[in-house]
Simulated scan of single mutants.
Amino acid sequence: MKTKILQEDLIYEILSAVEEIPEGKVATYGQIARLTGREKNARLVGKVLSMAQYYGSYPCHRVVNHAGRLAPGWAEQRFLLEAEGVAVKDNNSVDLKKYQWNC
């Protein structure tokens, strides 16, 4: 039982960091990992975000990979980012120099 609580604490810690990303900005999986003290766990962040809908409503669409690429197979991400004023290039990536959250 204690392990499950720790896992849920970790999930909410990651989702809380994602919730802080301002509208019109993006963060990388690695950036969220660093913010939560788990510098080398960017893939863990991705795994948590893939299950985020079970924990509430979070702006997971604002998280991209280290090169600014959107999540594969999630067409809605592009629409959500563009609705916030984030330009998405033809190769399904965003300009991190312009849109990355400076936290």
Rank of each mutant, 00 (worst) to 15 (best):
L49G: 06
W101S: 08
A87E: 14
T28F: 08
N91L: 01
N65R: 01
A83N: 10
G37F: 06
P22I: 11
S50K: 11
D9F: 09
P59N: 13
K40H: 06
E84M: 05
Y99C: 03
Q100V: 07
A27W: 12
L70R: 00
Y54H: 13
N41G: 03
K25P: 01
I32W: 04
R69G: 00
L6Y: 06
K98N: 02
F79Y: 10
S16N: 15
I5M: 04
L10H: 05
S93L: 00
G68R: 00
R69W: 00
S16V: 03
G37V: 05
Y58N: 13
M1I: 04
V86E: 07
L35M: 15
G56C: 13
G24R: 07
G24H: 08
C60M: 10
I32R: 12
G85P: 09
A71Y: 10
M51F: 12
Q53C: 05
K98D: 01
V86T: 05
L44G: 03
Y58S: 11
A83Q: 12
G46D: 05
Y55D: 08
L15G: 13
S50Q: 09
N91K: 01
V94P: 01
V86F: 03
T28A: 04
L15F: 12
G30I: 03
K98P: 00
R38H: 14
D90H: 01
R34G: 02
M51V: 05
W74E: 12
L70T: 00
L81M: 08
L10I: 06
G24K: 08
L6P: 00
L10W: 03
G73I: 04
K2P: 01
R38Q: 10
L81A: 06
E76S: 12
R34C: 05
Q77R: 10
R62A: 14
K89T: 05
L15Y: 11
P72N: 03
K97W: 02
A33P: 08
K4H: 06
T28L: 07
G37R: 07
V94H: 04
V64A: 04
E82D: 06
K2R: 08
E13W: 02
Y29K: 09
N41V: 01
S16P: 02
L44P: 03
N41S: 13
L10E: 12
V63A: 13
N91Y: 02
